[in-house]
């Protein structure tokens, strides 16, 4: 019954649904890397914070993450802004290694703090939407929450793209990336624009965490795998190109989904990194975009 057609099609659809969330995570990372050349090793921990924040609000109020995700975004915007102003700004201009150590250290502190406060147990939430499926024809079905998170993530990804390419703020952020010497001569307050960019990138991670909560499980180290995936997306997308990272996120979702379909779940992450190594060694400027953010 056309199984050779419907099974991979279902796989690709599932992949795109996951990929939209990856895209949002990757765009946040790419924005920060593109504007500041900072590899934020705390990106996954920020996602984890967004997840726990959403979890706490859900436990207290029962409001579905699909309505309250902006809270996680606002919270993580301020966390990102404060991280830049308080921790990263004082070491700008030092060797890159210090930034890497600092963000890695921050990630460890946040992860351990989460373990201290919430314990190492896995948590899941239950909302009515989880049991709903949308059927298209006899063979294809889509889990409703994934469709909702896909829609939200895509809208936000487009909004982020619009901000970076069309607004004066986005122009200023790109100007700093392209010529940090000339940017202040335009009247751009470089530190402020960078802090806001760092805040927006972190907010993207926080919102992704909120959207992941209903369909994933929550534990203190949940951010690690997403941090690794966002490295892969930034590299695939062409260092710091946010549209490149978005496309890379969708591609990664589909590749992972088809890999687990045909080879088994355990191979999905391996395939991510094979892609990562291949791109780095064969086309280090990335596949989906060469222009910087």
């Amino acid at each position: 019954m056309l199984n050779w057609f419907y099974i991979p099609l279902q796989g690709i659809l599932n992949g795109l649904l996951t990929g939209a969330l990856y895209a949002l995570i990757g765009m946040g990372m790419a924005l920060i890397f593109g504007v500041m050349r900072i590899v934020n090793f705390a990106h996954g921990a920020f996602l984890m914070m967004g997840m726990y924040a959403t979890y706490v609000v859900f436990q207290a109020t029962g409001v579905s993450p699909y309505y309250q995700f902006p809270l996680a975004g606002v919270l993580l915007f301020f966390v990102g802004y404060a991280t830049y102003m308080g921790l990263l700004r004082p070491i700008r201009g030092q060797v890159d290694f210090m930034v890497i150590l600092l963000t890695m250290g921050l990630a460890l502190i946040l992860t351990d703090a989460a373990q201290l406060v919430f314990g190492a147990d896995y948590h899941q939430i239950n909302i009515p939407l989880l049991s709903k499926n949308i059927h298209i024809g006899p063979q294809i079905s889509i889990n409703a929450p994934w469709l909702v998170s896909f829609g939200i993530a895509m809208v936000l990804a487009c909004a982020l793209y619009w901000v970076v390419t069309q607004t004066m703020f986005g122009r200023a952020a790109r100007a700093i990336a392209q010529n940090p010497y000339a940017a202040p001569l335009m009247g751009i307050n470089v530190n402020r624009v960078q802090a806001i960019a760092f805040g927006i990138g972190s907010a993207a991670a926080g919102i992704s965490g909120a959207l992941l909560l209903p369909v994933f499980y929550l534990f203190p180290e949940v951010g690690n795998q997403f941090k690794l995936k966002s490295f892969v997306m930034v590299v695939l997308g062409g260092m710091g190109s946010i549209q490149g990272a978005a496309i890379a996120g969708l591609v990664l979702g589909v590749v992972e989904s088809l890999t687990s379909l045909y080879w088994g779940n355990e191979w999905a992450l391996a395939v991510d990194f094979v892609l990562f190594i291949l791109v780095l060694s064969l086309k280090p400027s990335g596949i989906f975009g060469s222009q910087r953010a």
Binding site: A175, Q178, G187
Partner: peptide
């Protein structure tokens, strides 16, 4: 005070129009 630095220092991956727009950032 507007400073046009040595070596032009444009934003190379942006269009002429976008470079001009950044000049009017304030």
């Amino acid at each position: 005070v507007s400073h046009v630095p040595e070596g032009r220092q444009l934003f190379p991956h942006m269009s002429v129009e976008e470079n001009l727009a950044l000049g009017a950032y304030i």
